[in-house]
Amino acid sequence: MEIGVPKETKDQEFRVGLSPSSVRGLCDSGHMVFVETDAGLGAGFTNEDYLQAGAKIVAEAKDAWNRDMVVKVKEPLPPEFPLIQKGQILFTYLHLAAARPLTEHLIQAGVTAIAYETVELPNHSLPLLTPMSIIAGRLSVQFGARYLERQQGGRGVLLGGVPGVSPGRVVILGGGVVGTEAAKMAVGLGAQVQILDINLERLAYLETLFGSRVELLYSNAAQIERVVPDADLLIGAVLVPGRKAPTLVSREFVAKMRSGSVIVDVAVDQGGCIETLHPTSHTHPTYVEAGVVHYGVPNMPGAVPWTATQALNNSTFPYVLKLANQGLKALDADPSLAKGLNVADHKLVHPAVREVFADLV
């Protein structure tokens, strides 16, 4: 099979779909990999690295897209829409619930679109989302701590505090992978941490993980209204696979937060769970509304591409190899991979995405 790896076009997205080691694995299995010039440079992989792995370097994006399968990191942006071809396999993060124009184009194009974020194991875990969720969760506190600095527009709060001065308060909405990793970082810094979740079993598990170091609360509107105003850093970490994230924090609640507090919504690529937050970019990561600093970069792991590319490839490569070896028959052989199928034969396939775009079904 011919596999294309185009350079990512999202603002300051330095990750790359396949690392040189993944390319070598594909080439050793008899496949041909076409990598756009400098596609991996931002992640620390040179053209020479890919050549040594067995890839062919192509000068333009269209030469990488003109293949049986295209492996990316982020969803195609409008300038890439004309490059998507009927009958090819597109394997990448898609987050269609928050991207109607992309959804419509994928249906029209007749591509087979498989989304990393909806590949699901029998235990309901999301193996291709998890590595980036771990990174995004950890970065949410790292970035939040930075934007709490006065020079960045924040309150001037040190999350860990110092002897004689209270530490900052971190409120995390959602106790899944993102929320757990955010809590680990915040606890490590010495912050006061609260996690809200609607899953009592998950809260019980988190108690075994954190003990009394984290306050674990059942999430409802009254609880959210109570804790949000006191947050120095509010982290949105809500995920409903394939669907738009629910809005948990209203504009009214945000207005009650102290001036210079910070919101980081990791769920922004699924529409976000905070009403006042909209997508930003690594170039312009924040804005201020109601006196609160909002951070809404949807590709947060792109800030650490060397780590993120390798972590992603560790999870995606076995599935890429299955698709390369078996084509679409891999979907029949692997039910977990089949759950990643979002669009096929000019139709929406994934049940959750079909619910979001009922008018396109």
Score class of each variant (00 low, 15 high):
residue 24 R to G: 14
residue 216 L to N: 11
residue 43 A to C: 11
residue 304 V to F: 03
residue 111 V to H: 11
residue 121 L to N: 15
residue 274 I to G: 00
residue 25 G to H: 02
residue 215 E to I: 09
residue 73 V to E: 05
residue 297 V to K: 00
residue 250 S to L: 04
residue 183 A to I: 14
residue 103 T to W: 12
residue 211 G to V: 10
residue 29 S to H: 14
residue 251 R to M: 11
residue 44 G to A: 10
residue 48 E to G: 04
residue 218 Y to T: 09
residue 334 D to K: 07
residue 258 R to A: 15
residue 194 Q to L: 12
residue 254 V to G: 02
residue 331 L to P: 05
residue 337 L to G: 13
residue 319 Y to C: 09
residue 247 T to G: 03
residue 121 L to K: 13
residue 215 E to G: 05
residue 110 G to Q: 05
residue 273 C to Q: 08
residue 303 A to I: 11
residue 31 H to M: 09
residue 174 G to H: 08
residue 281 S to Q: 10
residue 330 A to Y: 06
residue 92 T to H: 07
residue 35 V to H: 01
residue 84 I to Y: 07
residue 69 M to D: 03
residue 118 T to R: 05
residue 233 L to I: 01
residue 4 G to K: 09
residue 50 Y to P: 08
residue 57 I to P: 07
residue 179 G to T: 03
residue 17 G to R: 00
residue 151 Q to H: 12
residue 121 L to F: 11
residue 237 A to R: 03
residue 174 G to N: 08
residue 3 I to H: 12
residue 70 V to N: 07
residue 130 T to W: 06
residue 196 L to P: 00
residue 195 I to V: 08
residue 204 A to G: 13
residue 109 A to G: 11
residue 172 I to M: 09
residue 298 P to C: 06
residue 286 T to H: 01
residue 233 L to Y: 03
residue 262 V to G: 02
residue 31 H to I: 10
residue 162 V to T: 13
residue 257 M to W: 09
residue 95 H to G: 05
residue 117 E to T: 06
residue 33 V to D: 08
residue 80 E to I: 01
residue 337 L to P: 08
residue 300 M to D: 06
residue 268 V to W: 00
residue 195 I to Q: 01
residue 331 L to Y: 06
residue 199 N to W: 06
residue 317 F to Y: 15
residue 202 R to L: 10
residue 212 S to C: 03
residue 219 S to Q: 13
residue 153 G to L: 06
residue 79 P to L: 04
residue 168 G to D: 03
residue 324 A to G: 13
residue 292 V to P: 01
residue 59 A to D: 15
residue 201 E to S: 14
residue 134 I to Q: 15
residue 25 G to T: 11
residue 180 T to Q: 08
residue 348 L to S: 02
residue 192 Q to W: 04
residue 312 L to I: 10
residue 136 A to G: 13
residue 22 S to R: 07
residue 225 E to P: 05
residue 346 H to K: 09
residue 75 E to W: 11
residue 301 P to I: 02
residue 262 V to I: 09
residue 49 D to E: 10
residue 344 A to F: 10
residue 96 L to I: 13
residue 107 I to A: 12
residue 325 N to G: 05
residue 22 S to Q: 08
residue 267 A to E: 05
residue 9 T to I: 11
residue 335 P to L: 02
residue 218 Y to I: 01
residue 20 P to A: 05
residue 328 L to W: 02
residue 356 V to E: 14
residue 329 K to H: 13
residue 128 L to R: 01
residue 163 P to H: 14
residue 40 G to V: 00
residue 57 I to N: 02
residue 336 S to M: 07
residue 133 S to D: 07
residue 191 A to L: 03
residue 314 N to L: 06
residue 56 K to P: 02
residue 300 M to F: 03
